[in-house]
Protein backbone atom coordinates (compact mmCIF):
# COMPACT_ATOMS: atom_id res chain seq x y z
CA UNK A 1 0.00 0.00 0.00
CA UNK A 2 1.32 3.41 -0.84
CA UNK A 3 1.15 6.09 1.77
CA UNK A 4 -1.68 8.06 0.18
CA UNK A 5 -3.80 4.98 -0.45
CA UNK A 6 -3.37 3.89 3.12
CA UNK A 7 -4.42 7.29 4.49
CA UNK A 8 -7.51 7.25 2.27
CA UNK A 9 -8.34 3.76 3.42
CA UNK A 10 -8.00 4.78 7.07
CA UNK A 11 -10.21 7.80 6.50
CA UNK A 12 -12.95 5.62 5.02
CA UNK A 13 -12.66 3.17 7.90
CA UNK A 14 -12.86 6.02 10.40
CA UNK A 15 -15.99 7.30 8.64
CA UNK A 16 -17.56 3.84 8.85
CA UNK A 17 -16.73 3.70 12.55
CA UNK A 18 -17.84 7.18 13.49
CA UNK A 19 -20.83 7.80 11.18
CA UNK A 20 -23.38 5.86 13.26
CA UNK A 21 -22.58 7.99 16.27
CA UNK A 22 -22.88 11.23 14.31
CA UNK A 23 -26.38 10.18 13.34
CA UNK A 24 -27.29 9.15 16.89
CA UNK A 25 -25.94 12.46 18.19
CA UNK A 26 -28.14 14.30 15.68
CA UNK A 27 -31.19 12.32 16.71
CA UNK A 28 -30.49 12.91 20.40
CA UNK A 29 -30.52 16.68 19.89
CA UNK A 30 -33.72 16.58 17.82
CA UNK A 31 -36.85 18.30 19.07
CA UNK A 32 -39.48 16.02 17.57
CA UNK A 33 -41.10 12.98 19.16
CA UNK A 34 -39.96 10.67 16.39
CA UNK A 35 -36.54 9.60 15.34
CA UNK A 36 -35.32 11.83 12.52
CA UNK A 37 -32.00 12.83 11.01
CA UNK A 38 -30.96 15.48 10.30
CA UNK A 39 -33.04 17.00 13.13
CA UNK A 40 -35.49 19.70 12.13
CA UNK A 41 -34.92 21.67 15.33
CA UNK A 42 -32.27 21.41 18.00
CA UNK A 43 -33.25 20.83 21.61
CA UNK A 44 -31.91 19.33 24.79
CA UNK A 45 -35.27 17.88 25.81
CA UNK A 46 -34.22 14.23 25.53
CA UNK A 47 -31.19 14.82 27.74
CA UNK A 48 -33.48 16.57 30.17
CA UNK A 49 -35.81 13.57 30.16
CA UNK A 50 -32.81 11.32 30.74
CA UNK A 51 -31.62 13.08 33.87
CA UNK A 52 -35.02 13.88 35.31
CA UNK A 53 -36.95 10.65 34.84
CA UNK A 54 -36.36 8.44 37.89
CA UNK A 55 -36.44 5.29 35.74
CA UNK A 56 -33.49 6.36 33.64
CA UNK A 57 -31.63 7.81 36.61
CA UNK A 58 -32.05 4.54 38.47
CA UNK A 59 -30.70 2.57 35.51
CA UNK A 60 -27.66 4.85 35.26
CA UNK A 61 -27.03 4.60 39.00
CA UNK A 62 -27.36 0.81 39.02
CA UNK A 63 -25.00 0.45 36.09
CA UNK A 64 -22.33 2.63 37.67
CA UNK A 65 -22.64 0.88 41.03
CA UNK A 66 -22.37 -2.57 39.48
CA UNK A 67 -19.41 -1.47 37.36
CA UNK A 68 -17.50 0.02 40.29
CA UNK A 69 -17.85 -3.03 42.54
CA UNK A 70 -17.34 -5.53 39.73
CA UNK A 71 -14.15 -3.75 38.66
CA UNK A 72 -12.90 -3.85 42.25
CA UNK A 73 -13.56 -7.59 42.44
CA UNK A 74 -11.95 -8.20 39.07
CA UNK A 75 -8.80 -6.25 39.87
CA UNK A 76 -8.53 -7.96 43.28
CA UNK A 77 -8.65 -11.41 41.70
CA UNK A 78 -6.23 -10.40 38.94
CA UNK A 79 -3.83 -8.82 41.45
CA UNK A 80 -4.00 -11.87 43.72
CA UNK A 81 -3.38 -14.26 40.83
CA UNK A 82 -0.46 -12.21 39.54
CA UNK A 83 1.08 -11.75 42.97
CA UNK A 84 0.92 -15.48 43.65
CA UNK A 85 2.46 -16.25 40.27
CA UNK A 86 5.20 -13.66 40.75
CA UNK A 87 6.00 -14.63 44.31
CA UNK A 88 5.79 -18.42 44.05
CA UNK A 89 5.63 -19.34 40.34
CA UNK A 90 3.66 -22.38 41.53
CA UNK A 91 1.52 -24.67 39.39
CA UNK A 92 -1.60 -23.46 41.19
CA UNK A 93 -0.97 -19.87 40.18
CA UNK A 94 -0.35 -20.90 36.56
CA UNK A 95 -3.65 -22.78 36.64
CA UNK A 96 -5.38 -19.65 37.95
CA UNK A 97 -3.93 -17.75 35.02
CA UNK A 98 -5.15 -20.30 32.50
CA UNK A 99 -8.61 -20.26 34.08
CA UNK A 100 -8.65 -16.48 33.98
CA UNK A 101 -8.20 -16.43 30.21
CA UNK A 102 -11.25 -18.71 29.79
CA UNK A 103 -14.12 -16.22 30.19
CA UNK A 104 -12.63 -13.98 27.50
CA UNK A 105 -12.65 -16.80 24.97
CA UNK A 106 -16.08 -18.29 25.61
CA UNK A 107 -19.23 -16.90 24.00
CA UNK A 108 -21.00 -14.76 26.63
CA UNK A 109 -24.25 -16.71 26.23
CA UNK A 110 -22.54 -19.79 27.67
CA UNK A 111 -21.23 -17.82 30.63
CA UNK A 112 -24.59 -16.13 31.04
CA UNK A 113 -26.60 -19.35 31.01
CA UNK A 114 -24.16 -21.12 33.33
CA UNK A 115 -24.22 -18.20 35.73
CA UNK A 116 -28.01 -17.91 35.74
CA UNK A 117 -28.40 -21.64 36.46
CA UNK A 118 -25.76 -21.40 39.18
CA UNK A 119 -27.30 -18.35 40.85
CA UNK A 120 -30.75 -19.94 40.68
CA UNK A 121 -29.37 -22.95 42.52
CA UNK A 122 -27.64 -20.74 45.11
CA UNK A 123 -30.76 -18.62 45.54
CA UNK A 124 -29.31 -15.33 44.30
CA UNK A 125 -31.08 -15.41 40.93
CA UNK A 126 -32.39 -11.94 40.15
CA UNK A 127 -30.18 -10.18 42.69
CA UNK A 128 -27.80 -7.36 41.90
CA UNK A 129 -25.04 -9.01 43.95
CA UNK A 130 -25.12 -11.94 41.54
CA UNK A 131 -24.65 -9.63 38.54
CA UNK A 132 -21.77 -7.90 40.32
CA UNK A 133 -19.94 -11.11 41.20
CA UNK A 134 -20.40 -12.61 37.74
CA UNK A 135 -19.23 -9.44 36.01
CA UNK A 136 -16.26 -9.27 38.36
CA UNK A 137 -15.22 -12.85 37.65
CA UNK A 138 -16.01 -12.98 33.93
CA UNK A 139 -14.14 -9.78 33.07
CA UNK A 140 -10.98 -10.77 34.93
CA UNK A 141 -9.00 -11.53 31.77
CA UNK A 142 -8.01 -8.00 30.77
CA UNK A 143 -6.77 -6.91 34.22
CA UNK A 144 -5.06 -10.29 34.58
CA UNK A 145 -3.03 -9.73 31.42
CA UNK A 146 -2.43 -6.02 32.03
CA UNK A 147 -1.32 -6.45 35.64
CA UNK A 148 0.99 -9.25 34.50
CA UNK A 149 2.80 -6.63 32.42
CA UNK A 150 3.14 -4.56 35.59
CA UNK A 151 4.76 -7.41 37.49
CA UNK A 152 7.02 -8.15 34.54
CA UNK A 153 8.30 -4.59 34.76
CA UNK A 154 9.52 -5.11 38.35
CA UNK A 155 13.18 -6.03 38.39
CA UNK A 156 14.43 -8.65 40.81
CA UNK A 157 17.17 -6.33 42.08
CA UNK A 158 14.76 -3.58 43.12
CA UNK A 159 12.91 -6.07 45.30
CA UNK A 160 16.17 -7.45 46.70
CA UNK A 161 17.32 -3.91 47.49
CA UNK A 162 14.15 -3.32 49.50
CA UNK A 163 14.58 -6.64 51.33
CA UNK A 164 18.20 -5.87 52.19
CA UNK A 165 17.17 -2.51 53.61
CA UNK A 166 14.92 -4.36 56.02
CA UNK A 167 11.51 -4.44 54.34
CA UNK A 168 9.28 -7.38 55.26
CA UNK A 169 7.27 -9.12 52.56
CA UNK A 170 4.26 -6.93 53.35
CA UNK A 171 6.38 -3.78 53.37
CA UNK A 172 7.96 -4.68 50.04
CA UNK A 173 4.48 -5.04 48.61
CA UNK A 174 3.19 -1.80 50.11
CA UNK A 175 6.20 0.45 49.52
CA UNK A 176 7.61 -0.90 46.24
CA UNK A 177 5.35 -3.32 44.35
CA UNK A 178 2.07 -1.48 44.78
CA UNK A 179 3.30 1.99 43.75
CA UNK A 180 5.06 0.55 40.72
CA UNK A 181 2.12 -1.46 39.42
CA UNK A 182 -0.48 1.21 40.26
CA UNK A 183 -0.86 2.42 36.64
CA UNK A 184 -1.60 -1.13 35.55
CA UNK A 185 -4.17 -1.56 38.33
CA UNK A 186 -5.90 1.67 37.33
CA UNK A 187 -6.00 0.63 33.68
CA UNK A 188 -7.39 -2.78 34.55
CA UNK A 189 -10.00 -1.23 36.81
CA UNK A 190 -11.09 1.30 34.20
CA UNK A 191 -11.41 -1.29 31.44
CA UNK A 192 -13.50 -3.67 33.56
CA UNK A 193 -15.71 -0.80 34.72
CA UNK A 194 -16.27 0.34 31.13
CA UNK A 195 -17.01 -3.18 29.91
CA UNK A 196 -19.36 -3.83 32.82
CA UNK A 197 -21.29 -0.60 32.27
CA UNK A 198 -21.80 -1.62 28.65
CA UNK A 199 -22.58 -5.31 29.09
CA UNK A 200 -26.06 -6.53 28.26
CA UNK A 201 -26.41 -10.28 27.90
CA UNK A 202 -24.97 -11.56 31.20
CA UNK A 203 -26.63 -8.83 33.24
CA UNK A 204 -29.92 -9.57 31.51
CA UNK A 205 -29.84 -13.33 32.03
CA UNK A 206 -28.84 -13.16 35.68
CA UNK A 207 -31.15 -10.42 36.88
CA UNK A 208 -32.46 -8.46 33.91
CA UNK A 209 -36.09 -8.48 34.91
CA UNK A 210 -35.35 -6.99 38.34
CA UNK A 211 -32.05 -5.15 38.04
CA UNK A 212 -32.51 -3.01 34.95
CA UNK A 213 -29.11 -1.62 33.98
CA UNK A 214 -28.72 1.04 31.32
CA UNK A 215 -28.01 -1.33 28.40
CA UNK A 216 -30.97 -3.48 29.41
CA UNK A 217 -33.22 -0.45 29.60
CA UNK A 218 -32.07 0.79 26.19
CA UNK A 219 -32.56 -2.66 24.66
CA UNK A 220 -36.06 -2.97 26.11
CA UNK A 221 -36.90 0.49 24.85
CA UNK A 222 -35.68 -0.29 21.36
CA UNK A 223 -37.59 -3.56 21.33
CA UNK A 224 -40.89 -2.21 22.50
CA UNK A 225 -41.20 1.04 20.56
CA UNK A 226 -38.57 3.62 21.14
CA UNK A 227 -38.28 7.37 21.53
CA UNK A 228 -35.27 9.67 20.97
CA UNK A 229 -34.47 9.45 24.69
CA UNK A 230 -32.72 6.20 23.79
CA UNK A 231 -30.42 8.21 21.55
CA UNK A 232 -29.53 10.61 24.34
CA UNK A 233 -28.95 7.67 26.73
CA UNK A 234 -26.66 6.08 24.14
CA UNK A 235 -24.72 9.29 23.68
CA UNK A 236 -24.32 9.64 27.44
CA UNK A 237 -22.78 6.20 27.33
CA UNK A 238 -20.45 7.02 24.50
CA UNK A 239 -19.42 10.15 26.38
CA UNK A 240 -18.70 8.21 29.60
CA UNK A 241 -16.71 5.54 27.75
CA UNK A 242 -14.64 7.94 25.67
CA UNK A 243 -13.97 10.25 28.63
CA UNK A 244 -12.81 7.36 30.78
CA UNK A 245 -10.42 6.22 28.05
CA UNK A 246 -9.10 9.73 27.45
CA UNK A 247 -8.38 10.13 31.16
CA UNK A 248 -6.69 6.75 31.09
CA UNK A 249 -4.58 7.81 28.11
CA UNK A 250 -3.41 10.86 30.04
CA UNK A 251 -2.55 8.84 33.15
CA UNK A 252 -0.82 5.91 31.49
CA UNK A 253 0.97 4.88 28.34
CA UNK A 254 -1.93 3.15 26.59
CA UNK A 255 0.08 2.09 23.55
CA UNK A 256 2.73 0.60 25.82
CA UNK A 257 0.11 -1.16 27.93
CA UNK A 258 -1.25 -2.86 24.83
CA UNK A 259 2.23 -4.26 24.29
CA UNK A 260 2.76 -2.28 21.09
CA UNK A 261 5.84 -0.32 22.14
CA UNK A 262 8.93 -1.01 20.09
CA UNK A 263 11.21 -1.08 23.07
CA UNK A 264 9.09 -3.76 24.74
Amino acid sequence: MTHRASIMFLTLVALFLIAPFVVVTGVSFGASNTIAFPPKAISLRWYQTLITEPDWLKAIGLSLLIAAIAATISVSIALAANYALWRTGSGLSKLVFALGIGPFLLPPIILALGASLFWAEVGWYGRMEATIVSHGVFFVTLPLVIIARGFASLTKEVIEAARMLGATETQVFRTVVLPLIAPYLITGFALVAIISVNEYLIANMIAGFVVETLPIKIFNNVRYGYSPVVASASMLFVAITVTALLVLARLTDLIGLLGASKED
Binding site: L17, V24, V222, S234, T241, L245
Partner: peptide
Amino acid sequence: VILLLSLMCLSEVIIGFAWLII
Protein backbone atom coordinates in the same frame (compact mmCIF):
# COMPACT_ATOMS: atom_id res chain seq x y z
CA VAL B 1 -6.16 3.19 19.97
CA ILE B 2 -8.62 5.32 21.90
CA LEU B 3 -11.20 5.14 19.10
CA LEU B 4 -10.87 1.37 18.87
CA LEU B 5 -10.87 0.85 22.62
CA SER B 6 -14.00 2.99 22.89
CA LEU B 7 -15.73 0.92 20.23
CA MET B 8 -14.56 -2.33 21.80
CA CYS B 9 -15.96 -1.33 25.17
CA LEU B 10 -19.14 0.18 23.82
CA SER B 11 -22.30 -1.82 24.40
CA GLU B 12 -23.61 -4.02 21.59
CA VAL B 13 -26.94 -2.50 22.40
CA ILE B 14 -25.77 1.00 21.53
CA ILE B 15 -23.94 -0.05 18.38
CA GLY B 16 -27.00 -2.02 17.31
CA PHE B 17 -29.23 0.95 18.03
CA ALA B 18 -26.96 3.28 16.07
CA TRP B 19 -27.09 1.03 13.02
CA LEU B 20 -30.82 0.60 13.42
CA ILE B 21 -31.14 4.35 13.04
CA ILE B 22 -28.62 4.77 10.25
